[in-house]
């Protein structure tokens, strides 16, 4: 079984984004970029399907392919996935912001040549917070989907997936090929070891462009302005619980 994992290069989750004072966008210059945390979880799950572990038998996956759509530097994100244990990478070069719809169309093109049995995406990119690409891809392919996965059990021609939903947990069966998107509790990704980081440098990365797939990446949505959220100022420190209750009464919330 072949598994494809789309990985996005995003601002590192530890960093706080800066909004440009003129409202024209966010300033990412000189800030550390990393693999989207949900995508790291997706790669880890795919690699466990290959190596065994996390409830998967070794060899359940025969090959793990990491795909990123973005600038030249997204190669580093793919190398990240290769260091966790993916076998090879595909970089689809595209400049500027690529909306989930265009990403999904490009991924559809990749899938038509690669023919994976399973595609594992993150549930959400922590920069655009869209939570859309996996579902869009599933619709474009007419595949079933299991989003927000916290557990995946593979069978011959289907996967049983437990999903984190608002009221609790829901379990589905999806026929393969299928789309799965990861939630945070699916697994805890490993730290890539130095030898594996070195090995990753030798693994192949194919370079393509969005035009190779006939996809127009011009945004459909126009950002008129970008601002800082309204600032909440720090309030007061109270000394005792009694004082706190007094303040809450004054504020009219008790």
């Amino acid at each position: 079984m072949k598994v494809l994992v789309p990985v996005k290069r995003v601002l590192d989750f530890n960093l706080k984004v800066r909004v440009k004072p003129d409202g024209s966008g966010v300033d990412l210059s000189n800030l550390k970029m990393s693999i989207n945390p949900f995508d790291e979880i997706a790669v880890e799950e795919a690699v466990r399907m290959k190596e065994g572990g996390g409830g998967h038998r070794a060899g359940a996956a025969s090959e793990v392919i990491a795909v990123s759509i973005g600038p030249e530097q997204a190669q580093e994100t793919i190398r990240n996935a290769l260091a966790i244990g993916a076998d090879r990478g595909i970089l689809v070069k595209a400049e500027g912001e690529v909306e989930p719809l265009a990403v999904a169309k490009i991924l559809k093109g990749v899938i038509e040549t690669e023919k994976p049995d399973l595609v594992i995406l993150g549930k959400q990119a922590i920069d655009d917070d869209s939570n859309a690409t996996g579902q869009m891809l599933a619709a474009l392919l007419d595949w079933p989907q299991a989003t927000f996965a916290s557990k995946i059990v593979l069978h011959d021609d289907k996967a049983t997936v437990t999903r984190e939903v608002d009221g609790g947990l829901q379990t589905l069966d999806v026929e393969l090929p299928a789309i799965v998107t990861t939630d945070l509790r699916l697994n805890e990704p490993r730290y890539a070891s130095l030898p594996n980081i070195m090995k990753a440098k030798k693994k192949p990365i194919d370079i393509k462009t969005a035009a190779d797939f006939g996809v127009d990446t011009a945004p459909r949505l126009k950002t008129l302005n970008t601002t800082e959220p309204p600032k909440r100022s720090a309030g007061v420190k109270v000394k005792t619980a009694e004082e706190l209750v007094g303040k809450l009464k004054e504020a009219g919330v008790l």
Binding site: P100, L101, A104, Q135, M136, L137, L140, Q145, R220, L221
Partner: peptide, 20 residues
């Protein structure tokens, strides 16, 4: 979770970029 699960499928089928 129900809305987030379904909306992008509808958007993709309509060839529309979703506003999330």
């Amino acid at each position: 979770t129900t809305g987030k699960n379904a909306a992008p499928r509808v958007a993709a089928k309509l060839d529309v970029s979703q506003v999330s």
